[in-house]
Computed example of a mutant assay.
Amino acid sequence: MDELVLKFQGIPTTAISDALDGLFNLDPSIKPLKEEYSFAGRALTVKTAVGDNLAVQKAIREAKEGDIIVVDAKGDQYRAMAGDFVVGMAQTMGVAAMVIDGVIRDVVAIKGLNFPVFAKGTTVAASGKAGVGEINVPISCGGQAVNPGDIVVGDADGVVVIPQAIEQEVYEKAVHKIKKDEEREAKISGNREAIIAFIDKNLGQ
């Protein structure tokens, strides 16, 4: 895993989103199965037909340690892109997380794996295996463009994509945002007069 990805592991998605002016967030319906899940890594993208997960399995086979499998399942919520068996294979192959614009099944068993899965929800229906799909191509996931190798970060608040061309700049802006927030909190929190002054300033008074 490269150094910049490791740095992003300690940055909240909220700070990254602010650094990106809120322009690169996945749809908030894509949520972690457990609030404590978080990840940062580079995207291994999957484009697949609705209800067909063979391309997901191909991505698992080709994944490098620390990759994030990001699946464009067209938002379909009827057929699962993965169950506990597929997620378990991804975990064994060193995938760091799965982000699915669609749904999963076997939710209790997947939670038992303690592996970060972010999806729109759960279903009972299995996927097909027709094999329609591609990996490592530009996709749309949760209404956001994702290119192979983009840094993807997820936590309890959601998922954000960082385009490769601006990843260093975004990291620096996010760190600066965190520092400014900490300074503001130290100055204002617990101080009634400071809180009133802060709100009045925002209100233009």
Rank of each mutant, 00 (worst) to 15 (best):
M89S: 09
A119T: 14
Y37N: 08
M1D: 13
I199H: 01
N147I: 04
Q168V: 15
I151H: 10
K64A: 10
K74Y: 08
D27V: 00
Q77A: 09
D155I: 07
K187I: 04
A90M: 05
G51H: 04
D18C: 06
Y171N: 07
Q205H: 06
V46Q: 04
I188C: 08
I151C: 12
E167H: 10
N25H: 07
Q164D: 14
G10I: 05
Q77V: 14
L20D: 11
M93P: 00
G102E: 02
K47H: 09
G190H: 07
D72R: 00
R79A: 13
D72M: 00
L23I: 06
Q164K: 15
F198L: 09
L33S: 05
D21E: 14
I68S: 08
P32M: 10
R192N: 10
M1Q: 13
D21P: 01
G112F: 01
E167S: 12
T48S: 12
D200T: 06
Y78P: 00
K173G: 15
F115P: 01
K74R: 14
G22H: 09
V99T: 08
K120T: 02
A80E: 00
K111D: 12
L203Y: 01
V153Y: 08
K120F: 04
M93Q: 15
Y37C: 09
K180I: 13
V56K: 02
K64M: 07
A130R: 14
A109Y: 06
Q77R: 14
Q57C: 10
A109V: 04
G51K: 07
I30W: 04
A90K: 05
V107M: 11
V153K: 09
A96H: 05
V160S: 10
Q205V: 05
